[in-house]
Design a protein around this nucleic acid. Structure first.
Lengths: 311, 311
DNA sequence: TGCGGTTGATACCCTGCGGGTATGAATGAT
DNA sequence: ATCATTCATACCCGCAGGGTATCAACCGCA
C-alpha cells in the first residue's frame, strides 16, 4: 500500500511552499487540476489530511508540516543518490570541495598542499557557492565535502571542528566607531548590514537555527542581496554599511579605508569540515584527516580535546 | 533531465541485491523484460553504467555500488517521510520508542516514570524488535526514538550516550569455565554462540561495522537464528551454547543453572538513545533529556563531561 | 567442439495512469 | 448581494510502464 513516489513529494512540497495550487502548478509546469488530484491521492494513500483548503486559503495541517520537512530531506537524498552515482561513474574521479570563497580560515592552501601528498588523494575540484549553500551541496551530492561555518544544518552530514577565530567588524576607517579598539553589539544599533555577506551575522545573532542566519533588520536600506566582495568593500569604505568577516579573511583584504575591529560580545566563527554521513570514500576520509591535522598544527598550542572523528 | 523516481531506485536495489534480473523481477512481482528496460533507462538518465551484465553473471560497477548504498538511504528517507506524516496525523499523538526487550540498562522503568512527569510528554508506545532493528525503525519512521547498543548504524540519526555496562558471558553453571571468576575471549574458542541473541557479540568482536554484527562461526551447530530468550537460557543451561548479555539484563534473569562471568577483554555495552537527525519534536526532545538525566543519576558518581544534546 | 540450458535483450502489444481542458461550486471581499 | 478568485469535478487522451513471445549470447559439459 504505502509506497510514495518522488513525484508525489515534489508536488506536495511545491503546494506546501506556495500554499496555492495554481502557483504551485505553474511552478511545476503543469495544470492545476491534476495537481489537486495528485495531492488528494497522496492524502488518501497516507490516510492523513495534509492541507486544509478553502477556496481562499490553503494551510498545512500538523501532518503536512511534518511531511514538508521530511519530504525535503527525502528529495535531497534521492537527487543525492543520483548525483553521487553519476560522479562515481566519471572516468577520472575527483574530490569536490564546497566552500565559500575566502571562508577557509586561511587554511585552504596548506590543506590542499598536505592533501596532495596523501595516498588516497584525488584532484580537488572547488565547488564555490554562497554562504549557507555548502551543506546543501554536500547533502544533494554536488560536493563530496565542504568547509563551512558552524552552526549549519547538519542533517545527513558528519562534521569535524577545525578552527575558531573571531569575527571582525568591517567599517569605514573614518567612522567614529573605528577610533575604538573594540566594540560591542549594542554599538551597532541602526547600522546597515548587507544581506548575504560572506559571514552574514546580523543582529539575529541570538538565533542558532539550522538554516543560515539571515539579517532581518528593517533598517538595512542598501546593498540587499549582494555577495560580491568588492562591492561590499566599496560600500563599507563609503560608510554605507558595516559587515562581519572572519579574522582570517580580513587579513587577505587589508585596505587603508577599512578598519577591522573585534566585537567583544559576538561569538566567534567556527570553521568545520563536513561530509556525507556514513561516507565510505577513502578520498573524503583522507581529506578530513588532512584538514583536521592542518587545523591542529595551526591552532595556538592549546591541548584541547581532539574529539575523534565519528567516521 | 535528472529526476529519479523511487520506483527506479527500488528496481535498481532489487537487481543490485540479487545480481540477477530474473530473481529481482520475481521479488518485485513483475516480469523480467520491463525490469531490464527500466534499469537500462536509469543508466541512460544518469549517463553511467551501473551493472556489468553477461548472460551468466551480473556485477556492480563502482557507480552501481555507490548508488546501491545511497539508494537504500534515499528509499529509507522517502518511506520515513510517509510514515512520519501518517503518525503525525493520528488523532492522539504518541511517542514510539524502539528497543530490544530487556536491553535498556535497567533504566526503562525509571525513564518512563520520569518522562511521564514532563510537560511535553506523550503516551509511550514500545516498538519491540530484534537487536539491530532499532536504528532502522527510527530511520524509516516506524519509531520516534530508540534505546540501542553502540556502535550502530547512525546514518540519519542523532544520538546521546546513556550508560556503559559490561557484557557478561552466560554459560552453564556446570561448565568448568564457570569455576573461574572471570574469563578472556581466548577461553571461548570453539564454543557456540547463538545467532541473533539479545547482545550478539560473537568472535567477530573486532568488527565495528555499522550493520549489526553477526556471528559467523561455522562451528555453531544449533540455535541458529533464535532470539527467544527462554530458548537461549535453556540451551545455555544444557551447555549447548554460551551467550553475551549486558550486565543489567543478567540481573533480571538470575538462574541457578546459569553462571554469568565477566570477560576481561570484551569491550562493554554502551547504551544510547537515538532520534531522527534534526527532529523538531518537543516530545522526543523531552524523552532524550529525561533519558540522559536518569542515566546520569544512575551512573556511579563520575563527574564526566555531559556532552550536551545537539537537538 | 558442438549442444543445450540459462539468462538478459528485443519486439511488439495493450492497459491504465498521469496530464490536459472545460466547467462547476464555494468562499471571502466589496 | 455580487463578483472575482480558486479549488474540485467531469471527461478525454496519449504514452509510459508492464506483459508475452522470442531471440541471442554466454557458459558448462560431454
Amino acid at each position: 500500500m504505502n509506497d510514495l513516489e518522488t513525484r508525489q513529494l515534489r508536488y506536495f512540497v511545491a503546494v506546501a511552499e506556495e500554499l496555492h495550487f495554481g502557483r504551485a502548478a505553474e511552478r511545476l509546469d503543469m495544470a492545476q487540476p491534476p495537481l489537486s488530484r495528485a495531492i488528494r491521492e497522496l492524502e488518501r494513500q497516507l490516510g492523513v489530511a495534509l492541507l486544509r483548503r478553502t477556496t481562499r486559503r490553503v494551510t498545512l495541517t500538523p501532518a503536512g508540516e511534518v511531511l514538508l520537512r521530511d519530504a525535503r530531506t527525502a528529495l535531497d537524498a534521492v537527487s543525492s543518490a543520483g548525483r553521487r552515482a553519476q560522479h562515481a561513474g566519471e572516468p577520472t574521479p575527483r574530490l569536490r570541495l564546497a566552500l565559500k570563497p575566502d571562508v577557509d580560515g586561511g587554511l585552504l592552501p596548506r590543506i590542499l598542499d598536505a592533501y596532495a601528498g596523501e595516498d588516497a588523494a584525488l584532484p580537488v575540484d572547488l565547488v564555490l557557492g554562497r554562504v549557507g549553500e555548502q551543506a546543501q551541496a554536500v547533502r544533494d551530492g554536488r560536493a563530496d565535502t565542504a568547509l563551512l561555518l558552524s552552526p549549519f544544518d547538519d542533517r545527513g552530514l558528519d562534521s569535524e571542528h577545525l578552527i575558531t577565530e573571531p569575527f571582525l567588524l568591517a567599517l569605514a576607517a573614518a567612522d567614529p566607531l573605528a577610533a575604538r579598539p573594540s566594540l560591542r553589539l549594542a554599538d551597532l544599533a541602526g547600522l546597515s548590514l548587507p544581506d548575504g555577506s560572506p559571514a552574514d551575522r546580523g543582529p539575529g545573532i541570538g538565533r542558532h537555527g539550522r538554516t543560515g542566519p539571515r539579517g532581518d533588520m528593517a533598517t538595512a536600506s542598501t546593498a540587499q542581496g549582494t555577495s560580491d566582495l568588492p562591492e561590499i568593500f566599496q560600500l563599507v569604505e563609503l560608510g554605507s554599511v558595516v559587515c562581519f568577516f572572519p579574522a582570517s579573511l580580513t587579513r587577505r583584504y587589508p585596505r587603508p579605508e577599512i578598519a577591522y575591529r573585534p566585537v567583544d560580545d559576538l561569538e566567534p566563527a567556527a570553521l568545520a569540515v563536513a561530509w556525507p554521513q556514513g561516507s565510505r570514500s577513502a578520498a573524503v576520509a583522507a581529506f578530513v584527516r588532512t584538514a583536521t591535522a592542518v587545523a591542529a598544527a595551526t591552532r595556538p598550542r592549546s591541548r584541547e580535546t581532539p574529539r575523534t572523528a565519528t567516521a
